Amino acid sequence: MTYPYPLLDRPSLTWTKQTDKTRDIKVHEWIETIGETVPDWNDVDVTILGVPLSKSSISTSAASENPDAMRQVWKSFGTYNLDEDVDLASLKAIDLGNVKQHVTDIAQTHRNIEEAMVAMKRHHPHTMQVTMGGDHSITAMLVNGLKRANPDETIGILQLDTHFDLRDLSDIGPANGTPIRNLLQSGSIEGNHVHNIGLHGFFNAKELKDYADEQGVHYTTMKQARKKGIARVISGALEELNQEVDTIYLTVDMDVLDITHNPAAPAATPGGMYTEELFDAVRLAGEHPKVKAMDIVCLDPRKDVGGMAVKSAVHVMLSFLTGYCKR
């Protein structure tokens, strides 16, 4: 068989699609799964991918369980967003399954992730690609794949994160603390095309700030963002990127949320973003025509309390798609 089967495992959860538009449709009834034949990609608006990798996480993490945890929670959400009067059921979304994982070889898994993105963007470049991680190391592989598929395009990064993720690869390798530096060193992106929003407190070394300044990385602390207004900061970053790049990639590290809003991030901290601020931020990103892919990373379902973190992650995905639906 051809794409997507050689690179992907089928979704472990499959649902019956609900076609009766007169009743309340739940997310799990809306999102389709790959069948025995490859669909007509021209009819597909959104492709969803799971990357269950957390072996490359600096801290102990079961973020590998997050893709399926998010799928389980889909049945708790309807497709209609009352806040925006938007029904996501107007989009055709397909769950492609999970990138194949090597049991012990992280480098091989990283190659699989990159190849999966290359294949997706070559076979159906028009679809909005949403990835459920996994730790943050996967972002470098996904963006590298995006660059390989579109070598002539300039890629910008909108990063919502508590951390710079600019640690030295020579110290820890391609881990969840290094994806942005990995992309800078690979040449897939330029420093001045990175906008990181949400950094705060005592969780970033001075040497990483200095490196960010040297590379021209744009960053807005949580304190600055809240003072200016999240919507204004996100809109400003998108406008700057719009002037400089062809494609914008959105990466959402769930540790950007305050620990009281998300206890399940391996690096959860006090002083972070609130859920309503994050939902607004990703919706605005989804509305922008140059945002062509996004990921949600660094969420450990084993550390969750009452499902609040996993439900927040699904809300992030749906809020982003609400923005996409409003284009």
Score class of each variant (00 low, 15 high):
E32H: 11
N262K: 04
I48L: 05
A231L: 11
L7C: 05
I189S: 06
D280F: 03
G272L: 04
E244F: 11
N144A: 00
D304Y: 13
L91Y: 03
T109S: 15
M120W: 12
K21N: 06
T260L: 14
A267N: 14
K121T: 12
N204F: 02
T178L: 12
E115A: 08
G177Q: 05
D161E: 09
A237I: 02
L160M: 10
D68K: 03
I113W: 10
G201R: 04
D40W: 04
S57D: 00
Q243M: 11
L278R: 11
L8F: 09
K17N: 07
S137L: 03
N150Q: 06
Q159E: 00
F202I: 15
K223P: 01
G133W: 02
L96E: 01
Y3G: 03
F320H: 05
A116E: 02
L318N: 09
L184P: 03
S57W: 01
E239G: 11
N66A: 15
D280H: 01
Q159F: 02
V38C: 13
S188L: 00
V118S: 02
Q72S: 13
L284V: 11
W41P: 12
A225C: 10
V130L: 11
V297G: 09
T2M: 13
T2D: 15
K147H: 13
M254I: 03
R111P: 00
K228V: 06
T260R: 09
S319I: 09
L257I: 07
K147V: 12
D135I: 02
E65T: 08
K121R: 14
T33K: 12
H218K: 00
V194W: 03
H28N: 15
I155R: 00
I113A: 08
A175D: 10
V194S: 06
Q224Y: 09
T178F: 07
A309Q: 04
D68P: 00
A281E: 01
T178D: 12
R283N: 02
L82H: 13
E190H: 10
S235M: 09
H200R: 15
P6N: 10
A93C: 03
K223V: 13
G191Y: 03
Q129D: 12
A140P: 06
E287D: 05
N42D: 11
G323E: 05
D300I: 14
G173W: 02
G271T: 07
E214L: 10
L160R: 03
D83A: 12
N98H: 06
V305N: 12
N242S: 15
I180D: 01
H126V: 09
Y324W: 04
S186L: 01
T60V: 13
E32F: 00
K311F: 01
N204W: 03
E276T: 08
P174M: 10
T154W: 06
L7T: 12
G191M: 06
D168V: 01
T275V: 13
T260H: 09
V297I: 11
A205K: 09
T275L: 14
A175Q: 08
E115L: 13
V233N: 06
